[in-house]
């Protein structure tokens, strides 16, 4: 503990060096310790997963199918499935989220009850447990929309009224919507008022101003939001548990009405329901490593872009 504190002091401690006050030192030390514990745990997790996963982690692992009852081979279908999932999800969520953000920053007046309700809804969406989205996907997309489409257009033949990649992606898009809205909103707010005024003073209408000046200026914000949403969507499993993820598929999904494999779901299945958990351990760790690298690097990119936006705003 003492050692930890001293180390931390060298690293982070900047002011309060007079330190005749023991009580104060103790309090500050406790807060430092908390920071240290969190960061240490984070790196321990990262370290162990990298260490355990590196053995199996290779290009071949990423680019081949699982074999021998998923006890050997790679994770290609899970990777591709995740990829399709986040793409379809982004196609649905990005326009939706961007437009909502435009409403909130450009159209909503300050005291509008409607805007307050939209804000509240967005924040609620952000805290609804992800499993609830899964239930909603099942109840709304599959049982209501999908089954409805089947009855209306397929003569009752079961095609859309069952879990598939489209419904899973749409379910995921609801979950990631707040992420996009918040990012885009933040970016829109950094567009200086002077630019909007310049455009309006030239006789541009509100929508022309948004289209020509505001939106081009917030492309990077939309990108940040998309990347963060993709990072989130790639890692979430609960919403797709019963809306489309499959245990094992011998082929890649050929249409949106097919089921798909997914990295996160693969990890869950392999670690809890595999026939031989011990034997597949390296595969599990390597899959986790792939997923973690994916989400963390996406996040890192988003953080970099975001800090650039913030710097520009200053």
């Amino acid at each position: 503990m003492d050692k930890v504190n001293i180390e931390l002091e060298n690293q982070f401690f900047s002011s309060e060096k007079k330190g005749s006050d023991i009580k104060g030192k103790f309090f500050v030390g406790v807060t430092q310790l908390a920071v240290f514990i969190i960061i240490a745990v984070l790196f321990i997790i990262l370290g162990i997963i990298v260490y355990q996963g590196r053995a199996k982690f290779s290009w071949e692992f990423i680019s081949s199918f699982p074999t021998n009852g998923m006890t050997e081979g790679g994770i290609l279908p899970a990777l591709i499935g995740t990829f399709i999932l986040v793409i379809v999800m982004s196609i649905a969520a990005v326009p939706f989220g961007t437009i909502t953000a435009i409403y909130l920053t450009e159209y909503a007046s300050e005291n509008s009850k409607f805007a307050a309700a939209v804000r509240f809804s967005v924040r609620t969406l952000a805290v609804v447990p992800s499993i609830i989205f899964g239930l909603f996907g099942l109840g709304f997309f599959i049982q209501f929309l999908g089954a409805g489409v089947d009855t209306a257009f397929n003569g009752g033949e079961l095609r859309w009224g069952q879990p598939n990649i489209l419904w899973a992606s749409l379910t995921m898009s609801l979950l990631t919507l707040p992420v996009i809205i918040v990012s885009v909103e933040e970016a829109l707010k950094t567009i200086p008022r002077e630019l909007r005024e310049a455009s309006l003073a030239l006789g541009a209408t509100k929508w022309q101003t948004i289209k020509q000046v505001v939106l081009p200026g917030s492309v990077s914000g939309i990108m940040t939001g998309t990347i963060l949403a993709v990072s989130r969507g790639a890692g979430e499993v609960a919403p797709i548990l019963f809306t489309g993820a499959a245990y094992y598929l011998a082929t890649l999904p050929g249409s949106l009405s097919d089921q798909f494999m997914n990295l996160g779901y693969h990890i869950y299945i392999m670690s809890t329901q595999s026939s031989d958990v011990e034997k597949t351990m390296p595969i599990q760790f390597a899959t986790t490593l792939v997923l973690l690298l994916l989400t963390l690097s996406l996040n890192l990119v988003a953080v970099v872009i975001r800090s650039r936006i913030r710097r520009r705003a200053k």
Binding site: E197, A204, T205
Partner: peptide, 25 residues
């Protein structure tokens, strides 16, 4: 028309800045 205290050109090319008004018309 209006010219502001702080010069506020759009983050576009010089040409596009001038053409902005006629274009939106």
């Amino acid at each position: 028309g209006m010219v502001f205290q702080k010069s506020n050109p759009f983050p576009k090319s010089i040409y596009e800045n001038i053409a902005y008004g006629p274009k939106i018309n």
